[in-house]
C-alpha cells in the first residue's frame, strides 16, 4: 500500500518532468526565454500582465515563459511529496530515500539555473546546463520508478539471469544518447551565435558556417541506431515481455529522431520539428535507465 503510493507519486513526478521538458523546449523554440524579463518575478509582478503592456513586455511570450515556471513549481511540489513519503515510510530503504532526496536537489538546482538563464540573458552555457540537469533529473526519477515497480511486482522479475554484455551495451547506449543530445544542443547554440553575428544568413549559409562536428551529430545518430538494433537482437529470447517492448520503443524512437533531424535540414518546418526532436531524445534517456534496471538481476 505504502509502496504503491510511493510508486504512483514517482510516476507522476516523472511524467511531470517530461512535460516540463516539453514546455521548456517550447519556450526555447518560440523565443520566449526572455518573455519574463526578471526572475523569480515576471516583470513587475509575480504574474505576467494580462492586458497590453506598458513596459514593452510581450504578454504572449511572458505567459509562455510563466507557464514553464509554474510547471517547474508543480514538479517541485510533486517531488517534495515523493520525499515526504520516502522519509516517512522508507527511512530504512536507503536506496529509494537517497535517490528521492537527490531528485529534490536536482529539481532545486535546475529551478535556480532557470533563474540564472534570465539573469544572464540566455547565456548559451547555462542553457546547456539547464537541459543537462533536466536529463539527469528524469534519469533519477525513472530509476526510482523502475526500482519501486520491481519491488511491487517482484514475482515478474524472479529468476532473471543478467546478460552482462547487454547491460554494458545499455550503459554505453545511455552515454551515447547523452553525448548526442549535448552535441545537438551545441549545434543549436552554435546556430544561434552564427545568427547573432550574421543576421542576414539564409538557412543553408547557417549550416555551412557550422563547425565540423555537425557531422558528428549524424554519425552518432546512426551509431545509436546500430546499437539499439543490437540491443533488440540480444533481447529477442528474453523472458520479460516488458523488456522487449522497451527495446522496440528505443529503436523506434531513434529512427523517428533521425527522421526528424533530416526533416529539419531539408524542409522548412523548423519549430515544431525541433521541439519533438529534443523532447523525443529526452525520453530515450529515461527509458534506457528503465530497461537497464528491468533486466538487471538484483
Amino acid at each position: 500500500m505504502k509502496l504503491r503510493l510511493f510508486y504512483n507519486s514517482a510516476v507522476i513526478a516523472t511524467i511531470l518532468s517530461y512535460l516540463l521538458i516539453f514546455i521548456g523546449g517550447l519556450v526555447r523554440v518560440s523565443g520566449a526565454g526572455m518573455g519574463c524579463p526578471s526572475w523569480p518575478k515576471c516583470g513587475e509582478g509575480w504574474i505576467p500582465p494580462t492586458n497590453v503592456d506598458i513596459n514593452q513586455i510581450n504578454t504572449t511570450l511572458a505567459w509562455i515563459e510563466f507557464t514553464n515556471r509554474m510547471f517547474g513549481v508543480i514538479l517541485g511540489i510533486s517531488i517534495i511529496i515523493l520525499n515526504v513519503i520516502a522519509i516517512f515510510y522508507f527511512r530504512k530503504n536507503h536506496n529509494l530515500l537517497f535517490y528521492s532526496i537527490l531528485s529534490l536537489i536536482f529539481v532545486i538546482i535546475n529551478g535556480l539555473l532557470g533563474g540564472a538563464l534570465v539573469w544572464f540573458e540566455l547565456n548559451p552555457y547555462i542553457k546547456t546546463a539547464h537541459m543537462l540537469f533536466a536529463l539527469i533529473l528524469v534519469s533519477i526519477l525513472s530509476y526510482i520508478c523502475i526500482k519501486s515497480y520491481k519491488m511491487l511486482n517482484s514475482n515478474l522479475f524472479k529468476g532473471l539471469t543478467s546478460n552482462l554484455v547487454l547491460l554494458k551495451s545499455l550503459i554505453f547506449l545511455w552515454i551515447l544518447i547523452v553525448i548526442e543530445i549535448l552535441l545537438g544542443t551545441g549545434l543549436r547554440t552554435n546556430i544561434e551565435l552564427i545568427v547573432i553575428e550574421n543576421p542576414l544568413f539564409s538557412k543553408s549559409d547557417q549550416l555551412d558556417a557550422l563547425p565540423y562536428y555537425k557531422y558528428m551529430h549524424s554519425i552518432v545518430g546512426f551509431a545509436l541506431l546500430f546499437f539499439s538494433i543490437y540491443v533488440n537482437y540480444s533481447l529477442r529470447n528474453h523472458s520479460l515481455l516488458l523488456a522487449k517492448q522497451i527495446g522496440y520503443f528505443i529503436t523506434g524512437m531513434v529512427v523517428l529522431q533521425i527522421f526528424l533531424g533530416e526533416m529539419m535540414i531539408f524542409f522548412d518546418l523548423p519549430q515544431l520539428t525541433r521541439l519533438f526532436h529534443t523532447w523525443g531524445s529526452s525520453w530515450l534517456v529515461g527509458v534506457i535507465i528503465i530497461l537497464y534496471n528491468c533486466i538487471k538481476n538484483e
Binding site: 516539453f22 517550447l26 523554440v29 518560440s30 510581450n58 504578454t59 504572449t60 515544431l272 519533438f276
Partner: peptide, 20 residues
C-alpha cells in the same frame, strides 16, 4: 494533443512578435 497545443502556442508567439 501536445503537438496541437505547441503549434497553437508557436503561432500565437509569432503573431505577438508581429503585433509588437
Amino acid at each position: 494533443f501536445l503537438g496541437t497545443v505547441a503549434l497553437f502556442t508557436l503561432r500565437e508567439a509569432t503573431e505577438s512578435k508581429i503585433q509588437n
